[in-house]
Design a protein around this nucleic acid. Sequence first.
DNA 1: TTGTATGCGTTATCAA
DNA 2: TTGATAACGCATACAA
Lengths: 341, 341
Amino acid sequence: MQKTGQPTINDVAREAGVSKKTVSRVINRSPLLGDDTRRRVEAVIEQLGYIPNPQARALALRRNFLIGLVHDNPNAQTVMNVQQGMLEGLYGTEFEMVVRPLDRGSPRMLDDLRHFLERQRLFGVLLLPPVSENDTVAELCRDIGCRYVRMGSASLDAPEQMVASNDREAVRAATDYLIAQGHRRIGLICGPHGFRSGVERRRGFEEALAAAGIALPRSLIADGNYTFESGLVAADRLLDLVPRPTAIFSSNDEMAAGVIHAARQRGLEIPRDLSIIGFDDTPIAAHVWPPLTTVRWPIASMARSAALKLIAGYEEGEPVEEPSLFLSTLIRRGSVSTAPA
Amino acid sequence: MQKTGQPTINDVAREAGVSKKTVSRVINRSPLLGDDTRRRVEAVIEQLGYIPNPQARALALRRNFLIGLVHDNPNAQTVMNVQQGMLEGLYGTEFEMVVRPLDRGSPRMLDDLRHFLERQRLFGVLLLPPVSENDTVAELCRDIGCRYVRMGSASLDAPEQMVASNDREAVRAATDYLIAQGHRRIGLICGPHGFRSGVERRRGFEEALAAAGIALPRSLIADGNYTFESGLVAADRLLDLVPRPTAIFSSNDEMAAGVIHAARQRGLEIPRDLSIIGFDDTPIAAHVWPPLTTVRWPIASMARSAALKLIAGYEEGEPVEEPSLFLSTLIRRGSVSTAPA
DNA sequence: TTGTATGCGTTATCAA
DNA sequence: TTGATAACGCATACAA
């Protein structure tokens, strides 16, 4: 035993009467190892309560047992859900999660990331949108030799390093639902420029209208940037139109909350005078009034799966095949009604 | 240069014509070092782009350059704000943040934490409420030799390892404000049992009423657990009272959102029929309708300060004295009016 | 003020 | 199948 109180591989080796290397083989489940030797060493490990030192392993392997969460996502709830999912996937393993926000727009963003990955020698990183949509970043990871999985609203990479949601189809289905309720003048509030999710959701919306043969004048499309305030502003513009849209699809819940706000300010009752559908299904969706009909985006599951992909092959048990495509589903609550006659 | 491409301390030593140890002294800013030697080594470091390997340092120092965020806090927004604040404090240093949620209530919670701290040999941890209120946990950190700072609603430890907010005074002030608006029948929705914040906020409320000579029947106090749903339930009970309270103080915003919900469901208009004050000033407060008057809890600043305390003495520059007490302030928005005559 | 030898706890190499 | 020995990159004790 050392003075630190933690038993080391040497203690185990001495106690078991074998060499360090043999203990190391047991730890790393080397196939070429006598069964009785293995059992003997395992018994000593158990008895001593020995745990391999991650720092020493990191030094020897030139690789840390840390999984990074790299993001420049502005939405707190999204990031939290992702963290929860990741930690779920990492639970019970030797991996820990380190969080690294990035400053999108900073010219040094890429250098910062390279620095981070190289210095910490991360085992792998989960890339969150929108930075996950940046091919240069993925390339950087490959260069450095850092595993990565990208999360996004469309398939941008090989299945091993991608978890994607079907935003386009989901929004198309949501819009179909509005159309089925009799709505014909439907406004759209877009996501920010440079977000693939924004593009996909918009396309889904447009496809649904086109398929139903409904014209979509440019005036019914409003810009947004996923914030409450931008939803408020966009809704104000849309609700000023004559005739007014009878329904609005907002590319996320936060903006949808802004729409509700704007509608109420001008005395409109939801859903009687205006139907609204959001996207994400964050807690805010259930807590506004009326509760928001929205598309549930399964980011926690996606993040969990991404974490499992990142550590695939380094943990015991069968390497379960993790899916790469996750389906978003419509959650019907109280913010949609049939169109006024 | 090694095959990894990263220059090591040996490369620097060779290039500068000094020993490794001298380079090491430069890195660690040892005082006993010739000025010209230092400059020469620094020049080589700069030229080679040398960065000390954190894994090797961790092994040699038996201490990692990781700051842990240990929490069992159920509120996503709170955790996010804390993370943001921590990262702000850590920005530009060699420290990284690793996040570690704890399962409160699990009997193995303490063992899990000990395992985590010992294995990873964290440099320090920030303890979030409610786990930060657990003295056994703080003791564990001391035993292991892991720095810690506790965050909480009251001073529970020495200033070096504490960042506290003045919840009691803040709630007292908020309640005073309601009283000044003419309210006399004021309901209270408490925080969950076992949360010091709940206790402090309740005391602040009670003190304000007592100071104003207003009776506080037990029926006006409702239990809650900081969730929207619990706020809904509590509000339903309070609003059933005859006569009805004209104002409600909710121990956090999330529950206050539930109160608004409940009030609207029974046709009450806010603030005309019911005034509400929350606590936290999370985004939800500004986004409900009407915008919620609430107490701003400066957790991001607290977390930033905590991070700086944790790494105090290990970074260049003067060790700035960080405060230990943070003031919460009342944010007046639209959910309070004068009491009905 | 600077250098040498050694330790930190693990894995990799290569021989037995 | 196992073991001796050398990395891994940096820090500390002790000399010089």
